[in-house]
Amino acid sequence: MSTPRRLLIIEDDASFARTLGRSFERRGYAVTTLSGPDGLEARVAAFRPDHAVVDLRLGGASGLTCVAALHGLDAAMKIVVLTGFASIATAVEAIKLGATNYLTKPANTDDIEAAFARVDGDAGATIVPAPPTSIKTLEWEHIHQTLADVDFNISEAARRLGMHRRTLARKLDKRHMG
C-alpha cells in the first residue's frame, strides 16, 4: 500500500481552505491547513508535506515568505502559489523562491493538481506577441512590485508610491478577485 500524498494548504480564507482540503482528500491526499506563516516550521516538521498550496496574500502577511520557508525546509516539495492578486512581479518572485507553479484564482483542484505535475518548463512553448499593456495594468504591476518589495506593508508601499495609505487600500480592495 502506498503512502498518501501529503498536502499543506496555507490560506487565510477558512471556508476556501476547508473546501479545497476536502476536494484533495477525495483524491487521496492527506491534508492539513494553516491560516498564515505562524507555526509553519512546526507543522511541516510534524506533518511532512510533499505538496503545498500557498495563498499569496495572507491577511497582513505575504505568502511569499511561506514559499521561501517551505522551500528552505524541503527543496523537493511541490509548491503552488494561488492568488487573486496576480502580477508578473510576484509570479517571478514566487518561482525564484521555490514555487513549482503560480495560478490565479479561480482555480480548481484539477488546475492545482496539473500544476503540481508540471514541474519542468516547456522550451517549445508557443511564443505569441503580447497585446499592448494598458495604463491600468502597468499601474497595477507597479503597485504590486512595490508591495512585494516592502513585504506587503501597505503603509510603506503607499509612502514609496507617493499616495495616501487609504487610497492604496481602496485600489487593492477594487482589484481583489478572490
Rank of each mutant, 00 (worst) to 15 (best):
G21T: 02
N108F: 02
F85I: 00
V54E: 00
H144C: 09
D110V: 05
L56K: 00
H176A: 14
R160I: 05
R166D: 15
I135G: 11
G124R: 05
K171Y: 10
R175E: 04
E25T: 12
G28M: 11
R5T: 07
S62I: 02
R43T: 15
A42R: 09
P37W: 03
D13K: 03
T167H: 14
A99I: 12
H71T: 00
E93H: 05
R170S: 08
Y102Q: 10
I95C: 10
T133D: 03
A157P: 15
P4Y: 05
T126N: 12
A68C: 04
R170L: 12
D38T: 07
S134Q: 04
R26N: 13
L147K: 05
A169K: 13
P106T: 10
R166Q: 14
G21A: 05
G162K: 08
D173F: 06
F16D: 00
F24K: 03
K136P: 00
L97Y: 11
L64G: 06
N153G: 02
L64F: 07
D122K: 08
R6P: 13
F152R: 01
A46I: 12
A89K: 03
K78S: 14
A30C: 08
A61V: 01
V92K: 10
K136F: 03
A14H: 10
E139D: 08
C66E: 02
C66L: 02
L82I: 01
V128S: 13
R22T: 07
A148V: 15
R165M: 06
T3M: 09
L40Y: 07
F152G: 01
E11N: 01
I95V: 14
T100P: 10
I112H: 10
A75M: 05
V92E: 15
G98A: 05
R26P: 05
T109H: 03
F152L: 03
T32Q: 15
P132Y: 07
V80P: 07
L147F: 08
M177I: 02
G84Q: 05
A158P: 10
I95S: 09
D74F: 06
A42T: 10
E156D: 15
V81H: 00
H51S: 08
L64Y: 05
R22Q: 08
P4L: 02
D149L: 14
L97G: 08
W140T: 03
P129W: 02
Y29K: 06
T90A: 02
K78Q: 15
K174S: 08
K174G: 06
G36E: 04
H144S: 14
D38W: 04
S23M: 09
D111Y: 04
K78N: 10
P132H: 05
G98Y: 00
R175T: 00
L34K: 00
D55L: 06
P129A: 13
P131C: 04
G72W: 06
A117H: 09
L97K: 12
A130G: 04
A17H: 01
I143N: 12
T137W: 09
A117V: 05
S62C: 06
M77G: 09
R159K: 14
V53P: 12
L58P: 02
A68E: 15
L40F: 07
I112A: 10
V128K: 11
E156M: 15
V44H: 07
R57G: 02
D12G: 01
E11K: 00
T137E: 15
